[in-house]
């Protein structure tokens, strides 16, 4: 019972971290049709900035998170302006090549600047203590992560479904040319969504640093996981991404707890089974 409970909490927390990081990828992929393999690199940059701010400069955790999100967006703006704009609408192979190149560069630079060791982000005391739920105690950090994931999901839902910008965003996702013809400034929609996506990636990278530790090869190691989650959920769909993250997070965590010697075997088996059954993703629409 204790095992099942702790697997459940860990799986939920892991799924939420996956969700926070990959939802930005899902939205930009649905919107701009870019296979962005460098998304994990932005999460890693966020983690490094937060680690530097909190550990080396001694800033508060909340401030470090804010700095990480703002700093990552600042770094991402020129990359979007000079590199990504060239590959919108290009064949997938070109996009894969370009974004793998960006990932390699970020890994190399991170390795040079911060060294190959694991970086920790010191959390405030309040998050380190276990919290009693009456019948069980769980780590406050896990609860915090789950709360963050739920908040991001709700916030994005409101942003996309209830605001004027969300209407434009959905219009651009459905048919960019038509939206542009009706007066939607699609390049602004693209730029804002890219910034939001990168900011969320950085946020997820910081919050999830205890589950996905920050090190130079982070960008390559989890790149595949993020891509898998987006594809299983169906690019551009928030409920699909949430469902995929929770499902795959549960499968991966359960596999690691019960059969650690099999590694990620069951994770990828489940991926093949799901994509086989739903070739367009859990919430994918026919085109």
């Amino acid at each position: 019972m204790q095992t099942i409970f702790s697997i459940g909490v860990d799986a939920l927390a892991y799924g939420m971290v996956l969700f926070v990081i990959s939802i930005g990828l899902s939205v930009t992929m649905g919107l701009m049709r870019v296979v962005n393999l460098a998304h994990g690199a932005f999460a890693m940059i966020g983690g490094y900035i937060a680690s530097y701010a909190a550990r080396d400069l001694g800033l508060a955790y909340a401030l470090a998170v804010l700095l990480a999100v703002a700093g990552t967006i600042l770094i991402a703006i020129p990359i979007e302006r000079f590199l990504y704009r060239r590959i919108y609408g290009q064949p997938e192979l070109t996009q894969v090549l370009m974004t793998i190149g960006i990932t390699f560069c970020v890994i190399g630079i991170a390795n040079y600047v911060f060294g190959p060791t694991l970086k920790t982000i010191p959390t405030p005391d309040a998050l380190r203590e276990p919290v009693s739920l009456g019948f069980r105690t769980v780590s406050a950090h896990r609860l915090f992560v789950i709360g963050c994931g739920a908040a991001v999901a709700l916030g994005l839902w409101y942003f996309i479904e209830r605001t004027a910008f969300g209407v434009k965003l959905r219009a651009a996702v459905d048919n960019a040319a038509m939206a542009a013809a009706l007066g939607v400034r699609t390049e602004i929609v693209y730029a804002v969504s890219f910034a939001v996506a990168v900011g969320l990636a950085a946020f997820g990278g910081v919050v999830g640093a205890e589950l996905l530790p920050i090190e130079p090869y982070y960008a390559l190691r989890y790149m595949v996981t993020f891509l898998v989650v987006v594809s299983v959920g169906g690019a551009g769909s928030i409920p699909g991404a949430l469902a995929a993250c929770l499902l795959l997070g549960a499968i991966d965590t359960t596999g690691r707890y019960l059969m650690p010697e099999f590694g990620e075997f069951f994770f990828y088996l489940a991926v093949i089974a799901i994509v086989w059954l739903f070739p367009r993703g859990l919430a994918g629409r026919a085109k």
Binding site: V96, S231, I272, P279, R280
Partner: peptide
């Protein structure tokens, strides 16, 4: 079985599965 991004992901899953 799939096209586009899901196809890419299926191929990634295959190589990881074979590796494990």
């Amino acid at each position: 079985r799939a096209h586009g991004l899901p196809q890419l992901v299926l191929s990634i899953a295959i190589i990881h599965l074979a590796h494990e």
